[in-house]
């Protein structure tokens, strides 16, 4: 949820045609300025020059962040360098021991790979299904609102509940869907087979997030100017061809941002689903990094290791975000 709303901005930017923001950010000067504090990237051409008012406006947000995010976060991360009991009554400074232990542990290495595969697969599945459904919704005239409402439903369901329902449906002993799979001759056993378990959590995580991508894609498709579509139709292009020639390029900014946001979702927000569906098992086959952080920090209360893992995760996520920002800026065509 956090981390996902910005996508609409893309719909927004793109829908406005050659938006001023895109134009401003694409000026070489603006790009350079972005590096200096108070640069002009993302600044309106018509802007105000006041020193105190903007700080006042920012104050509520920054104050909340300071009190409930930065101070706690720094205190939490500082534990990466200590060995401590849960109650904080004995603390030993151990330098980089926690990091060393992590980087040499086979369990941590395997978790990194699981995370990479999980994030990629989840991203691809979510986007592909959301795209098909959004395309279909854009085509149909009847019951469009109803379809949208129903497909949006998973968004309203707490992850805790969604996980329980999924685990049940696919349970090899009783799950109705597992019965179906077995009927089709598929040996389905997510309890013993790491691969099956991996598929299961990937689908469950995607299921919860499809609605998200879907609604942004629906909105983006609605914003495609009908005149363009009609012109193509006059030229004799069929609906599918039109979608690939016109629709897809027009919504490419939305797609790129959805990719970024799916990544944030897969990386940080899927622990509730993993917890309910597989608990990271069997044998670590679905142990993604964020679940490991949760498990080591919250269940095993190994605060040092958990903090060290968070530091590594944060660095990784920041690097990736920066890469994505650049990539999006350079390769997405905002001027279609």
């Amino acid at each position: 949820m956090q981390g996902s709303t910005s996508v609409s901005a893309l719909g927004a930017r793109h829908a406005s045609g050659a938006s001023s923001s895109a134009a401003a950010e694409r000026e070489p000067g603006a790009r350079k300025g972005a590096r200096a504090a108070g640069g002009t990237a993302g600044l309106k051409r018509a802007h105000y020059r006041e020193a105190r008012l903007p700080l006042l406006l920012l104050l509520p947000q920054l104050l909340v962040l300071l009190l409930f995010f930065f101070i706690p976060a720094i205190r939490a991360l500082a534990q990466a360098f200590v060995l401590t009991d849960p109650f904080g009554n004995s603390v030993q400074f151990v330098w980089f021991d926690n990091f060393r232990a992590l980087l040499t542990s086979p369990e941590y290495q395997s978790s990194v790979w699981v995370t990479i595969w999980f994030t990629l697969a989840q991203n691809a599945i979510t986007l592909a299904i959301a795209m098909v459904l959004a395309f279909a919704t854009d085509r149909v005239v009847r019951a469009r609102g109803l379809y949208r409402s129903v497909i949006l439903l998973p968004y309203a369901i707490a992850p805790v509940i969604a996980g329980i329902l999924w685990a049940f449906l696919f349970n090899p002993s009783v799950g109705p869907i597992a019965f179906l799979l077995k009927g089709m001759g598929i040996a389905w056993d997510p309890i013993r087979s790491g691969f099956d378990a991996f598929l299961l959590v990937t689908f469950a995580a995607s299921w919860k997030h499809i609605c998200y991508d879907y609604i942004f894609l629906v909105a983006a498709l609605l914003a495609v100017p009908p005149s363009l579509v009609e012109a193509a139709a006059v030229d004799g292009a069929g609906p599918l061809l039109r979608f690939f020639r016109i629709g897809l390029p027009m919504i490419s900014p939305t797609i790129f941002f959805l990719l970024a946001m799916n990544f944030v979702y897969g990386f940080f927000e899927t622990f509730a689903i993993i917890d309910a569906v597989t608990k990271g098992g069997p044998g670590g086959a679905t142990m993604i990094l964020v679940y490991k952080v949760y498990l080591d920090g919250f269940v095993h209360i190994d605060l040092g290791s958990s903090a060290a893992q968070s530091v590594l995760m944060m660095i990784f996520a920041l690097v990736l975000t920066m890469v994505q920002f650049r990539y999006v800026e350079r390769n997405v065509n905002y001027d279609v």
């Binding site: 685990a167 449906l169 349970n171 799950g175 569906v277 597989t278």
Partner: peptide, 19 residues
């Protein structure tokens, strides 16, 4: 036992008790 199906693992989503 697990390999021969003599013991069954219920897994998440089902209480072993139910088996």
């Amino acid at each position: 036992w697990v390999n021969d199906g003599v013991i069954q693992i219920a897994g998440q989503g089902l209480s072993p008790e139910q088996l």
